[in-house]
Design a protein around this nucleic acid. Structure first.
Lengths: 336, 336
DNA sequence: CTGAAAGCGCTTACAG
DNA sequence: CTGAAAGCGCTTACAG
């Protein structure tokens, strides 16, 4: 209740116009140094806080951005989105923006539509891209600024992503150069763009060495335990030397399965992962270190947020940014 | 860009006043049936969407609520907060509110302060309570409506929680009645209110049967792997019959440790948990089913959100609500 | 350098 | 049942 003080109160108390007060605060427009100081110190002392809502209306800006996450996500996906979320709220608040959270369940965009239609946000960040992404189409049609975390082939979309393709390509080549040439691959939803990129990187890793993968040992759309374990079974029966998992979600199941089957790593079979989100958290005492790719999620999410704000505020920005990676070699892929 | 249409445009097009349009939309104030229909159908067809910001300013309401989560959280805590978040956004949007996400890092309330000072929210939900919670104190001083998910002893705070005390009491008594009387307890941060409640429930479970716990076998503030494993070591060297874990985070470490030490469950020692958040997700193939307590997080978070909105909108509400639980018995506590 | 005034797009007493 | 007008608390040409 102490905060009923408005710009008018300040102006009157100081015997100046609210124009002047406004200018002192925003720093826009010419104003005498002395006057500014006077206003600023009064504001400081009396804890005047401008109303964000009134500012919004006057500027037709909300200073809010929407962050859209998939409504259905597995345990393993949470660390990624969580990191994105924290990084984005942190970055946004540095620019005086707040983050409104929204979710989409497949084709159901109603949450997102509300946010956009009610003009509650100045822009949107999409936490993930899918093939034929309905969110992307919708947002384009609405002509609201947005950036995707993840790659899309849709034209004219601002996007920020990890360089999955090159990371996977390099890791694959690395394994091949170690003499581990019969690689099996397990991935999940083909509808996620990231799956496609990793797949392409995998194939490119072979091609870089004039080799070719064994397509029979590539299992996609494995998004539950049983399909993953079935893939492992098949690989164990064939001559696969190393199981390459597209993400740590899959990797976890694979390791468990191998453990139960008493298959030794790396003696009996090797394991690598294209993503290490959870596994580095030293949270999973069961799991041995696995050769994998490490991305800096925070940095990428921060870039997504900055880029969006640049777009909102009419500054220049890059349409597409790709972030680097580290490959972490562990003895799970020891070549002997 | 199709959305530049305002209430004025609608009024003019229809030859009525904007008062009338406003009334047709809000349903407040008297208005002729025919007029209302006319306005509504025009709005429908022309996709007029009122500006939330203008509405906010006129009503001095933002239709936003803030959701405050701890900035530092472990992997194991994520499912809980995630569930809360989804449940809250879902509930909020049913009442036409949006959710702004905010975080606090211990004593650093700057995010929260920005949110409150800029008047960007009508109320706040705190995702967790701690002893001497600085957020609670701050929010009380600001006289902004808020509800906590979690119990607090601070007076006059609207709170919603799971009934940890009775749940833990009952599970403890149950074990004792099975003849498993030498229980060891491992818990984490004493500064979290929930730790205290579970501890009290544990002791009360003994007292209900005129018994007393062995206080030497109670280990608190175990919030990393090594301290948990040390506790397990001590229990293995004593005559503890069952290790009771305060949450699934701890339970996971305990199970891993026992597994590595080749200690059989339940033959050699039994295991129970006061919380099953992650473990029920059938995500953790390694982990065997453990006797534990199950809460309905979604229901509780929804209640938190509804209660907050009731408070914001001046309706009646309950100061404190406790939600029930299920005890899930598994063979990890087989008494023979 | 400073101010009076119009405007952002709604809501809501008040009057009819 | 309907409308003219004031007001919510800011910003920003425009004029001086």
């Amino acid at each position: 209740m102490n905060s009923k003080i408005t710009i008018n109160d300040v102006a009157q108390a100081l015997g100046v116009s609210k124009t002047t007060v406004s200018r002192a605060i925003s720093g826009k427009g010419r104003i005498g140094n002395e006057t500014r100081e006077k206003v600023l110190s009064y504001i400081e002392q009396h804890e005047y806080k401008p109303s964000a809502v009134a500012k919004s209306l006057a500027e037709s800006k909300t200073y809010n951005i929407g962050f859209v996450v998939p409504g259905a996500m597995s345990l393993m996906d949470m660390p990624f989105f969580q990191k994105c979320m924290f990084s984005i709220t942190e970055t946004a608040s540095a620019f005086d923006y707040d983050v409104i959270i929204s979710s989409t369940d497949g084709e159901d965009l109603s949450h997102l539509e509300r946010l956009v239609n009610n003009h509650k946000v100045d822009g949107i960040i999409l936490a993930r891209t899918t093939q034929q992404d309905p969110c992307i189409r919708y947002l384009k049609s609405k002509r609201i600024p947005f950036v995707t975390i993840g790659t899309t082939t849709e034209p004219d979309v601002i996007q920020v992503d990890n360089d999955h393709f090159n990371a996977c390509k390099e890791l694959t080549s690395l394994l091949l150069l170690k003499g581990i040439t019969r690689l099996g691959l397990i991935g999940s939803d083909k509808s996620h763009v990231v799956t496609r990129l990793r797949y392409d990187g995998f194939v490119a890793g072979y091609e870089a060495l004039q080799m070719e993968p064994n397509y029979k040992e590539i299992f996609l759309d494995c998004n539950n335990m049983s399909s993953i374990e079935r893939a492992v079974d098949e690989m164990l029966e064939s001559d696969t030397q190393c199981i390459v998992c597209m993400d740590d979600y899959i990797c976890r199941y694979v390791l468990n399965k191998l453990h139960r089957e008493q298959v030794g790593i790396p003696q009996d079979i090797r394991v690598a992962s294209f993503y290490d989100n959870v596994m580095q958290e030293n949270d999973t005492a069961t799991i041995l270190p696995v050769t994998s790719i490490h991305f800096n999620i925070q940095e990428m999410a921060e870039a997504a947020c900055r880029t969006l704000i640049d777009a909102i505020e009419g500054r220049d920005y890059q349409y597409k940014r790709l972030f680097g990676y580290n490959i972490i070699l562990s003895n799970s892929t020891q070549s002997n």
